[in-house]
Structure formats: structure tokens, C-alpha cells
């Protein structure tokens, strides 16, 4: 029984890692711009499709492998996915977010939901066989550490990457000028602009970083599932938004805490309640509803929403 619980804890941590990065994406955009971009899940999935597309172009992938060792070429691929995510997010910003800035939030909410549909359907229509589930290539090393099936190299790398990205983000937000400007903007936009922070530049920087994060999130999720479906983006995005809210919208560590909560609930309901697999989704969303009703500021409440 003990080893079973331990194994399920591992499963939950892995699930949390795939959710944490997208949750941070939601928090980042909300912190700076006070908006929720609902199509982030689709952007992450689209980035994973970009990586898949490059590997399926046999000529390009073989050439990459010819020039660089396997590890380096795989890292280049992941960076390609991140760059694609960053470009896509910037395009989204200019088409469906910027035109509605400062207006009714309902319009930007709907336009980003619609943008998610557009991204998803474009993949489904134009990617060859895009509506069928795709096998995601195994770019991470196979094999196990200490011959323990929970400690596969892939899992270790996924956790490692998530932690690394978090640390880099921490360094960026707290130690660089751009990061501190972004923090200032999220606290008081008018005052920050007055002291000479270039708001538009910072918004673009945020979107580029967020997009890169999403690209990596898409890659990690697809690698962990070893499959890729064009239509999972909306649920992935919804879970990402949920973990951001449960943790505390606007807080980077909150997103991590939130993803742990949701992942533990879902995995333990599946693993320990007989027939619970069918109810894991219900349990996860019930937690979200309860959090919003009783603790809307989240686990790590950075920003109170009670403006009254």
C-alpha cells in the first residue's frame, strides 16, 4: 500500500508539472495586462504540433541530427516550438487582444475563446491527418534510473525542465530590469508609465516570454502523453486557467501550488476510489468552484479581487 501511495504521488507530481507552466502563462498575462487569454491551451498544443511537424519532415530532422549530436538537435527542436509559441502569442495579441484593450472584458473574453477555435480548426484542417491522434516522437531519452519504473529519464527531465523554467522565471522577474518593470506595471500601470516604463515594449516582452513558456508546456505535455490531439487544447487551457485561479491569479508560485492541488485531487480520486476514474474531472472542477466561492484570492493570494 505504501508503495502504491508513493507511486500515485509521483503520478500527481508529473501531472502537476504538465499543468504548472500553462498556469504560469495565464498568471503572467493576467498580472501584466489584467486580461485572461483563453486560447493559451491551443497555442501550447499548436507549438507541440510545430515540433511534430519538423520531426516528420525527414530531411530537416536528419540534417539536424547530422550536424549536431542527438541531444543538441532535440533541444533546438524544443526551442523551435517555444519560438513558434512566442510568435503565435504575439500574433494573437495584435489580432484578438489589443483591439479590445480597455473595453468591456466580455469582448476580449469571447474573441480569445474564438481565436482558440480558429487555431484548433486550422490544425485540424491543414495539418496532414490533423484530426486523427498523432504519435508524438520520443525526443527525451528512454530508460530508467535505478531500474525503478517511476523514475524514467523522461519523467526526471520533465520535472527538471519545469523546475529550471521556474527558476529562470524567478530570476527574470526579480533580478532583471525588464522583470521589475513588469512587476511594477502589474501593480500600478499609470504610475509605471509616468516614471518612464515603456508599456508597449513590456507587453510584447511578456507575451514573448509567455509564448515561449507555452511552447515548452506543449512539448512537455505531448512528451508525457506520447500522443497529440488537435482538440485537447481547450481542456488543457481550461485546466491551466483553473490552476492559476486555485493558486492565486497573477502569482507564479500560486500557479505551481494550484497545479499540485488539482493534480493530487484528480490522481487520488482515480487511484483510490473504486470506479473513480469517471469522476476525476468532476472532482477537479468541484475544487475550482469551491475555491472561487470560499477563497477567491487563491492559495497564495497576491491580489485581492474584492474591490468593494
Amino acid at each position: 500500500m505504501g508503495s502504491l501511495i508513493l507511486s500515485q504521488v509521483f503520478n500527481a507530481i508529473m501531472l502537476a508539472c504538465t499543468l504548472a507552466l500553462i498556469g504560469i502563462g495565464f498568471s503572467l498575462f493576467f498580472g501584466v495586462m489584467d486580461i485572461v487569454v483563453f486560447c493559451l491551451g491551443d497555442i501550447a498544443i499548436a507549438s507541440a504540433f510545430c515540433i511534430l511537424g519538423i520531426t516528420s519532415l525527414t530531411g530537416v530532422y536528419a540534417a539536424l541530427n547530422g550536424i549536431f549530436p542527438m541531444v543538441v538537435s532535440n533541444i533546438i527542436l524544443v526551442i523551435c516550438g517555444g519560438v513558434f509559441g512566442a510568435i503565435l502569442v504575439t500574433v494573437m495579441y495584435h489580432t484578438v487582444v489589443a483591439p479590445f484593450e480597455g473595453k468591456n472584458i466580455n469582448a476580449s473574453l469571447l474573441s480569445t475563446v474564438a481565436a482558440g477555435y480558429v487555431i484548433r480548426e486550422l490544425i485540424g484542417i491543414f495539418y496532414p491527418g490533423g484530426r486523427d491522434p498523432q504519435n508524438f516522437p520520443n525526443l527525451l531519452p528512454t530508460g530508467y534510473l535505478f531500474n525503478n519504473t517511476m523514475l524514467s529519464w523522461r519523467n526526471i527531465i520533465i520535472v527538471g525542465t519545469t523546475v529550471l523554467v521556474l527558476m529562470l522565471l524567478y530570476w527574470f522577474v526579480n533580478r532583471t530590469k525588464a522583470g521589475i518593470s513588469i512587476q511594477a506595471l502589474s501593480q500600478n500601470k499609470e504610475a509605471s508609465i509616468m516614471i518612464g516604463i515603456d508599456w508597449h515594449k513590456m507587453v510584447i516582452v511578456t507575451f514573448l516570454i509567455g509564448g515561449f513558456l507555452l511552447g515548452i508546456a506543449g512539448f512537455l505535455t505531448a512528451s508525457y502523453a506520447s500522443t497529440l490531439r488537435f482538440d485537447t487544447g481547450s481542456m488543457y487551457g481550461l485546466l491551466g486557467f483553473s490552476v492559476a485561479v486555485v493558486g492565486g491569479l497573477g502569482s507564479i508560485y500560486g500557479a505551481l501550488a494550484g497545479s499540485l492541488v488539482i493534480a493530487f485531487v484528480e490522481v487520488f480520486v482515480t487511484g483510490f476510489i473504486p470506479g473513480g476514474a469517471a469522476y476525476s474531472g468532476v472532482a477537479g472542477f468541484l475544487i475550482v468552484v469551491l475555491f472561487i466561492i470560499f477563497r477567491p484570492e487563491g492559495i497564495i493570494g497576491e491580489k485581492s479581487i474584492s474591490k468593494v
Binding site: 489580432t95 474564438a114 481565436a115 482558440g116 477555435y117 480558429v118 480548426e121 486550422l122
Partner: peptide, 8 residues
């Protein structure tokens, strides 16, 4: 796709 585009 059309739905999304018309909406936007």
C-alpha cells in the same frame, strides 16, 4: 473555423 472567424 468559420464560426470562430465570423465571431472575431
Amino acid at each position: 473555423l468559420m464560426y470562430g472567424l465570423v465571431l472575431i
